[in-house]
Design a protein around this nucleic acid. Sequence first.
RNA 1: GCGCGUGUAGCUCAGCUGGAUAGAGCGUCGGCUUGCGGAGCCGAAGGUCGUAGGUUCAAAUCCUGCCACGCGUACCA
Length: 545
Amino acid sequence: MQKELKQAVVQACNRLFSVEIDPVITRPEKQFGDYATNVALQLAGQTGKNPRQIAEQLAAELQQIPAVAQISLAGPGFINFKLTDESLAEAAQSATDLPKPLKGRQILVEFGDPNPFKEMHIGHLYSYIVGDAIASLLESSGAKVKRLSYHGDVGLHVAKAIYGLGELQTRDEDILGKAYSYGNEQYEKDQQAKAEIDTINQHIYSRDDQRINQLHEQGIKLSFEYFDKILNMLSISTDKRYFESQTTPAGLELVNSNKDKVFKLSQGAVVYEGEKAGLHTRVFITSKGLPTYETKDLGLVMLKDTDYPDANRSIVITASEQAEYFKVMLAALAEIKPDLTVKTTHLSHGFLSLASGKMSSRTGNVYTAMAMLNSVRSAMAKKYPDSADRQEIYVAATKYSMLNHRLGQDIVIDVEASVSLEGNSGPYLQYAFARANSILEKSTVDSRQSTANDSRLTTLDSSERSFARKIGEYPEVVERAVAELMPHHICTYLYELAQTFNGFYEKSRIIGDEREEIRLKLVKSYSQVLRSGLSILSIEAPERM
RNA sequence: GCGCGUGUAGCUCAGCUGGAUAGAGCGUCGGCUUGCGGAGCCGAAGGUCGUAGGUUCAAAUCCUGCCACGCGUACCA
C-alpha cells in the first residue's frame, strides 16, 4: 500500500510539475490519517511556489486511488491520506505475507566469535544474540543466510591455557577458565613460566610436540562442548566455524604477494598505512615475522569467498572497539580485492553492562555468558515461581533485553526488568501472544468461513480501525529493519502493537459480540504478527504461559 | 594530541533519510475492577533534546565550535 501510494505521488508530481522526486510517505499520528507525505513542502522549496497551493493541486490529482477514502491537507502543506476500512482490514489480514526482496541471494553473517580456551562472556552472548537476529531478519526477506563464526585457536591465550592445563590437576567443568587464568597469572609474575608459555606458543604453531597437540585438541573439544551447551539453550546454530589456524596461510599469502604494492616495511614490520584513507597505520606482520589479527582476517575473507563463491554479501558483527580496526583492514583489502570489500559490511555492537553493577572487565574478572543466563533465570524464578523452569521464557527475556536497543550503542541491562511481565520485555510479548491465543481458542466462530459480502466486515469502528492499522504496519517495519539491519525496530513495533491491542481489548468485547467474526479476524492477524515478529527476533512464542 | 562514537524525563531507552503539540517502559501520584488471561486500561506530575552558534519556511534530527563520557590510536585480539 505504501509503495502504491508512493508511486501515485511520483506520477502526480511528474504530470503536474514535470519533476522527478522521491517522496517520503510516512505513518503520521492517528488524528491526521493513515499515511502522509510532505512532498508539497519539498516541491515548494524547489519550485518557489506556495506549498499549500501545490498540496491542493496534488490532492486533486490524486483523487482516484481505490484504497484511499479521503485526502486532506493540513499544516503548512502536508497531504494526509485516510484509507478505506476495507483496505486497512485487508492489509491487516495479509500482514505476515512479507515481501521477499532478498530471494535468491546468499548472505554470510559472522558473529559470536568466542575464543576456545577462554570463557564465553556477556559480550559474546550479546554478539550471538544480535547476530542471530540479524541473520533471521535477512531470512525473513527471503535471503539464504549462512551463520558463521571465527575462533582464535592459536596464539598466546591458548598457550597460557595449555600451560595451565598441564600444571593444574583438577578436571572439573570450568577447568579451561581456571587453566587460562592460572596461565595468565603465571605469565605475568613468573619468568620461567613466561618462557615456557612462549615455547608452548611456538609449538602450537609448528605442531611438533605430541603432548601439546593432545592438550590443544582436548581443550578445543571441551571448549566447543561448553559453547554448544550455551548455544543450545539459546537455540542458536552455526553453519560453519572458522579458525585462525586455517586463515593464517591464506592471509600471509595475500600480504606477502602485495608487500610492495599495498603494504610497506616499517621498523621491521609489514604495515598498511591507513593514513592515505584517513585512518591509521596498522601492523599486519610483526617484526618477528608473525601474522597479526589483521592478516588472519584478510585470510578469513578469502576463505569465506572460496567456501561461498556465490555469496552476495558478507556481514561481520563485532564489538565496537574493533570498528576502526575493521576500516583499516577493509581499506587494505580494497586495494587488493575491491569486489570483496564492496560485499563486506562490518557492524558493531556496543559494550554491554548490567544495571546491578556487575560488569565484564578485561582483567580476568569476566562476567560469563552462563552467569548472565543463570542470573536471568533466578530472577525469573524469584518473581514467577511457577515459570521457573521455562527456559523459553528466560531466554526470551535475555534476548529481548539485548535486541531492544539500537545496534551500536552501549547498553545497560536490568535483569529484573528483563524478566518482568510488566512493561517492554520479551516475556510481556510472549504473554500477549498466549493471551491472544486463548481468545482464539475460546471462540466457536469459524473465522475461515468467508463472509466477504457482509457489509459489517468492511466497516470498522474506531478501536478496530486503530488496531487494524497498527497490524498492517508490520511489513513496513520489517522492511525498514532489514534495510538498516536494525532488529530493534521490530521490538519497538511489537510492543506498540501489543499496547494497541490492549486498548482495543479494553473497549471491544470479542467473544459473544455481534462483531465477533471481524474482531476475531483481527486478533488472529495480531497473533500471527506477534509470532512472526518474535520469530524474526529468534524468540519462541509459547501457546500458553 | 588525532580519529571514531555517544550525550533526549529521576532511571533504562525509542525518535535522528529535517517536518505537524518531543514518545515509551520503569519509578512517583490519582482513578478504573460483579467481564473474553487486570501480567491490563484511563489520567497527572516530570524535558532549555549536553552547550553555544549556523543553515532552513521548518532542527532532537544537518553543519561548526566547546564541554562530558566511551572506544581506537603499530608489532594483542
